[in-house]
Design a binder for these strands. Structure first.
Lengths: 168, 168
DNA sequence: TAGAATTTTCAAAAATTACTGAAAAATAAT
DNA sequence: ATTATTTTTCAGTAATTTTTGAAAATTCTA
């Protein structure tokens, strides 16, 4: 397989995978392209390589920056903005975990706290089942939260080697 | 907050969350409804409670069964089929992890293996960056695979308490 | 085996989400 | 301050995904 074909394949698959993870196809493709690009790219480079419009590139790049996965790079003497992606996959993963925890787990747990205050007789089967579910999620969420914090704060080698030694 | 309102809120939020996780809104809502329902429900119950069509219920229920999150229940003497969801959230989580590993991680790793065989001079910057990315993902994926296996096979209390004791 | 109840399928419609491209805003150069 | 370059916005359009509902298939009953 030739390098150009392999690159295409990677971008396309990473994009398809994105849709399974609540990220839109194009955003994942831009990310893939930047990950395998040795040097920073401009909006025009990305437009050309992925065959998408300027507006589309602009919006997805902004989202990627919000996610902390892409950085603006200033090249001295150049007028245009350049963009580059974090290439260490462990850092990419922890960054995604950190963001999703903030955007999804935290608000979900806040809601569970509210819902667990529902009024009603706990001997009522409907109320009991509801509260059991909510409280189960609360407990699980609290554990997950703690573990993800540890995971995100630790460095790759320490975490993975320790974890595997112990759990395997 | 009254129980009926709380239930609605839970179903609606769980549904919205689903869309962030590559699951469609309705499928997540059906799952939410079944989790907080004390007794098994029929397709008609679900249609009525979520205000959706028969075909929609049918397809989403089937998907949930494929995911291993919902089971058909036979009630003696009843003609209709009943459905129920696993209520232990740890089991729900491990089931989802197991399925996603199979559907997403495994094929992705297979692709990385192929792509790492790309032909080209490793001193070429383009080739080197590509291979570094691919190999990084391979290494990361292998670790993740091992850890998820342990996680899925262990029981909740053992895993969470051991993990927290060690890593906190 | 015929008829009734229930489930499944799937083409068409609706709803949602993503993309384009041109105009406006911002930034830099002269 | 004017012009040139680049970035950003966003209304309209396109593409994709989800939902409906009625017909077909299946399953059960007698």
């Amino acid at each position: 397989m030739k390098i150009s074909e392999a690159r295409q394949q990677f971008i396309s698959t990473w994009g398809a995978m994105g849709t399974h993870w609540g990220i839109n196809r194009t955003m994942a493709q831009v990310h893939a392209l930047l990950m395998i690009s040795a040097d920073p790219l401009t909006q025009d480079d990305i437009m050309a390589q992925l065959n998408i419009s300027r507006g589309n590139v602009n919006m997805n790049i902004r989202d990627l920056i919000d996610w902390g996965l892409v950085d603006r790079v200033l090249i001295p003497g150049e007028r245009k903005e350049y963009f580059t992606a974090e290439k260490d996959i462990w850092k990419v993963a922890t960054q995604i975990i950190k963001e999703r925890k903030k955007r999804e787990l935290d608000p979900m747990m806040k809601l569970m706290d509210q819902l667990s205050k529902v009024e009603g007789d706990k001997r009522d089967k409907e109320v009991k089942t509801f509260l059991d579910t909510i409280n189960g999620i609360k407990k699980f969420g609290a554990h997950a939260d703690d573990m993800l914090d540890v995971l995100v704060k630790s460095d790759e080698n320490w975490f993975l080697s320790t974890a595997l030694k112990i759990f395997k």
